[in-house]
Amino acid sequence: MVEAWYMDESPDDPRRPHRLEPGRPVGLEQLRGLGVFYWKIKIFYEEHLHLDDEIRYVLDGSGYFDVRDKEDKWIRISMEKGDMITLPAGIYHRFTLDEKNYVKAMRLFVGEPVWTAYNRPADHFDAREQYMKFLAQMA
């Protein structure tokens, strides 16, 4: 949960918290009233698919991409600094950190960036249907 508060008027180092004494916390409703919206982004461990290919390049750290095979079983792919992976549109997958608990990754796009993830079940999308056809051809 994000934390917000009213600041003191001190000219001290701006890197300090500058909390009023006593503290005056600011809630999400008050922030929304100012047009400020907050979301807690899930770690991508929830199974999902995209309508576009997903291209990821690991800049630092490490983690795991999990993908589903033809029998719907998980395959874990270990990724570390310097690794790049392309996941086809329509494949169910998820991402998680490893025990080092740190990754810095970049997502690359072809064309206009689209970040939308569709949690399973999402079998009704054309991208999923096309991916399933691809799997059938590879059998």
Rank of each mutant, 00 (worst) to 15 (best):
I91M: 07
F44G: 04
M7R: 12
S78M: 07
P17N: 07
D72P: 03
P113G: 10
D8R: 02
D126T: 05
R120K: 13
L108C: 12
G33K: 14
Q30E: 15
Y45V: 04
A4K: 01
E112A: 13
H18K: 07
T116H: 10
R24V: 14
V58P: 02
H93G: 02
D12L: 15
L31N: 01
W115R: 09
T96R: 13
L108P: 00
D8H: 06
E3M: 05
Y64M: 05
Y6R: 14
F37A: 11
D60C: 05
E47G: 00
D60N: 14
I41G: 11
V110A: 14
A89Q: 08
R120Q: 07
P11F: 02
R32P: 00
G35S: 06
F125H: 12
K81N: 05
A139M: 08
Y131E: 01
R24P: 01
E112W: 08
A117H: 07
M7V: 11
F44H: 03
I41Q: 12
A127T: 02
P25G: 06
K70N: 12
V36G: 04
E99L: 08
M138T: 10
K104I: 03
Y64V: 15
L28M: 09
Y118H: 15
Y38S: 13
E80S: 14
D83L: 07
R32T: 04
H50V: 01
I85T: 02
R16K: 15
W5L: 14
D52G: 02
D13N: 15
L87Y: 01
D98S: 10
A117R: 07
K70S: 13
N119G: 10
I55D: 00
P25R: 09
S10Q: 10
E129R: 15
D72W: 11
Y64T: 12
H50A: 01
I43E: 09
E99H: 11
S62T: 07
E9G: 10
N119D: 09
I43Y: 01
E54K: 02
W74I: 12
H93Y: 02
P22A: 08
K104T: 05
D60Y: 05
D60S: 15
W39I: 04
K100Q: 11
L97M: 11
H93E: 04
Q30A: 10
F37T: 12
